[in-house]
Design a protein around this nucleic acid. Structure first.
Length: 361
DNA sequence: ACGCCTTACATCCAAGGATC
DNA sequence: GATCCTTGGATGTAAGGCGT
């Protein structure tokens, strides 16, 4: 690791030393720099992360190995900041386990079950069981599966980069295995594939069965009944929060997700206003698939706005309230979000904004 | 199937405002 | 000025997509 990074880490260490809890802190708007000796200045490498996790040990110092691993994920594997956060949390859980049991990563005695990695695996399974018995879900099968796989990848990284030497590793933290898997390709033929696995890995939970009265969308969703809808609307009418009213109206009448609604931009409304009517009194807009409005997993989809609703939205984006909010916001009057909080924050940061912030547009 | 990555959503937390 | 409430953000869980 370069000296620069270590120095930065020291600075961060000192800032964090006051508190003594194991946690995963976050650096906002991370931009990596390189030090130019001749010019005596820091030069940005152009690498950017909207948030960057730092795992802290109970004494408040940075867990250096975790930082090296997370930086490797960012720089060498070019992972998103969302993934860095997930990885940070996975490592955090492992660190908490080690500290609680007074173990370190190199605790690898002859007996397999006593090695830190196998004890962690056992701990994960116990925790899953514990919550299952109590009825409330706290740690699920998919999570523990992900956790243990992350740890294997973390050890692999440490060994690969000689953070551990062979003499330090008394016994193997795990054994890498090659598993043969069979799957059906798009033409319906059974294919065989060899994938990398380990003797630590925990199989994932089988997919939930879809029930007829729910929509499968990440979780199981239930459409509101007509009665529920009318109750909802009566409460909505009583609200004096125009933004909430409009967001809910769009949701009810178009079925769009909150993610799409909250990433709607002013130009989308303006363009729809001047576009041709379809299906009677509706106007259409494409979302997802690289369009400015986000959709889950960036899937392409068309949503239909009733002209009356569009009229309301058009009134809103020309209102004093909207102008007031937009002046405090990132985009000001440059194709801003339709919906902003009273402090000018978007309710949902769009993919487009992440891109724009990276390029400082 | 399996592993890796992305992301929706619940819950917790802290700061600031409202109310008495 | 103590307490409650709102709100945005932080944190944590886990489902689903995708490539293999």
């Amino acid at each position: 690791m370069e000296l620069r990074k270590l120095l930065e880490m020291d600075k961060f260490d000192n800032e964090c030393k006051k508190e003594n809890k194991i946690e995963c802190k976050k650096i906002r708007e991370y931009r990596s720099t390189e030090y130019d000796v001749e010019r005596n200045e820091h030069i940005e490498t152009g690498e950017y992360c909207s948030s960057y996790p730092i795992v802290l040990k109970s004494d408040g110092t940075v867990w250096d190995k975790a930082s090296l691993y997370i930086d490797f994920l960012r720089s060498d594997r070019n992972r998103s900041s969302a993934l860095l956060r997930t990885a940070g949390n996975d490592l955090l859980d492992f660190l908490r386990f080690m500290e609680a049991n007074n173990l370190n990563m190199l605790h690898l005695p002859i007996k397999k079950a006593q090695r830190v990695t196998f004890r962690y695996r056992h701990d994960l399974l116990e925790r899953e069981k514990e919550f299952k018995l109590n009825g409330h879900k706290k740690i699920g099968r998919n999570t523990i599966s992900q956790r243990i796989n992350r740890i294997v990848d973390f050890y692999e990284f440490c060994i690969e980069n000689k953070i551990f030497t062979f003499t330090e590793l008394d016994n193997r933290p795990y054994t890498l295995l090659k598993k043969r898997i069979y799957f059906e390709d798009e033409k319906g033929f059974t294919q065989k594939k060899v994938v990398r696995s380990s003797d630590l890995s925990i199989p994932r939970a089988p997919r939930a069965i879809q029930t007829s009265d729910s929509i499968k969308d990440g979780r199981k969703l239930h459409p509101l009944t007509e009665q529920e809808q009318s109750i909802f609307i009566s409460y909505l009418k009583a609200s004096n929060n125009r933004v909430l009213q409009l967001i809910c109206l769009i949701a009810l009448t178009t079925g769009a997700r909150i993610q799409s609604i909250c990433t709607l931009r002013v130009n989308d409304i303006k363009n729809m206003m001047i576009s041709k009517k379809v299906k009677g009194s509706f106007k259409k807009i494409e979302i997802g698939g690289g369009e400015s409005i986000d959709n889950k997993n960036d899937k392409k989809y068309i949503i239909f706005f009733h002209t009356e609703l569009l009229e309301m939205l058009n009134n809103y984006i020309n209102s004093e309230e909207w102008k007031e909010r937009s002046t405090q916001s990132y985009y000001k009057n440059k194709n801003n979000y339709v919906f902003l909080t009273k402090f000018g924050e978007p309710f949902y940061t769009s993919r487009k904004e992440l891109e724009d912030r990276k390029n400082r547009l």
